[in-house]
Write a protein that binds this DNA or RNA. Structure first.
Lengths: 180, 180
DNA sequence: CCTTTTGTACAGAAAAAACTGTACGTACTA
DNA sequence: TAGTACGTACAGTTTTTTCTGTACAAAAGG
């Protein structure tokens, strides 16, 4: 095995490792391979570049790139004179982690919170009605209590996301291990 | 619509909301419905209970419950005199979040770190060889640099996981909003 | 010991997701 | 203005995942 092959093997190992774990970012393995490939490239790539490099359709490249853009793993780059869209992986992996975390969880918290608000107000209204059996009343009160617990939890989660978003997390877990 | 139906609707909303977001825990929507249903039950349930309640096969219940146990969302409960396995959702949602986070990311960090170690040592050995073109040598050095950056990042991630695991995260983001 | 009950492994069916090729809208070029 | 290049919407195909029913091993009870 010559040196180039060894280099290729080394890259392939890392890329596959990324592919196996990219599901944590809500993406399929093929997007991981795309990301890994882009990571080792020095220059921004076009969709055609990626298509050629990975042997996959341009449509797939387009779809994955969009998903990775939404998750903030890659970004578009402009170069004068180049008509095609150019993409490169973001180089701050700490920020990649933070962005993924905040994007994914913020959406979940927001959806959940809306549902909880709605159910809580319905239940509280329901509770006011007369003509409810004591059992049902107890059940409703029970549900209200549970939902209020979850709401409190989501408040915490929201503050946790804030802490990531505004970099406070680095106060707790410093970048440099020596600082600890 | 009578009171019972309203209650059911309220629960259904929450359950569906969980089902839509349970992918963040690496589980399919049906597991989310199972979790949501269990959440509103006062007593621990058997696989047959769940099967009847959700109208799904017992095999599915068994599979999902195992996945949810692994992700630490539910736990087995023992009751004397009951032969069937009983399960209930964990009631500390903060801990659920922390467990999911640490379980999933610890595994990813561990796998990645192993791959990086291996590739780094290969590349460093390769670099020692004579008879490499200057271009190739530059590429190798470049890859080494990149991998060392990732390694540093994974070190940080590992310490972040530690911070969740040993509850330090609550120092940064307190449970009680008033404490801030 | 045998019988019954319970959970799960396994193979096949159903559903969902990923991938491809074509077609088309938009924007740049001449 | 017409022509070309580019990205993506969409429909159909392939692949993967989820779900079901059967069969069986392990444990409990008699």
């Amino acid at each position: 095995m010559d040196a180039e092959q060894k280099l290729e093997k080394s890259r392939k190992r890392i890329t596959e490792s990324i592919a196996q774990n990219i599901h944590l970012y809500g993406l399929p393995p093929s997007a991981g391979r795309q990301f890994g490939m882009m990571f080792f490239e020095d220059r921004p790539l076009t969709l055609d570049d990626m298509s050629a490099e990975l042997g996959m359709s341009k449509t797939s490249m387009s779809t994955s790139i969009r998903a990775m853009s939404d998750a903030k793993l890659v970004e578009r780059v402009w170069e004068r004179g180049v008509r095609k869209d150019l993409y490169k992986v973001k180089d701050d992996w700490y920020q990649i982690f933070i962005d993924m975390f905040t994007v994914k969880w913020r959406r979940a918290v927001s959806l959940h919170t809306a549902a909880i608000r709605k159910s809580l107000s319905e239940l509280k209204e329901l509770k006011q009605e007369g003509s409810l059996s004591p059992e049902l009343l107890a059940t409703i009160s029970n549900d209200i209590e549970r939902l209020e617990y979850i709401r409190t939890y989501y408040d915490w989660l929201d503050r946790l996301i804030d802490a990531f978003e505004d970099q406070k997390i680095f106060e707790l877990v410093p970048l440099d291990e020596e600082d600890m």
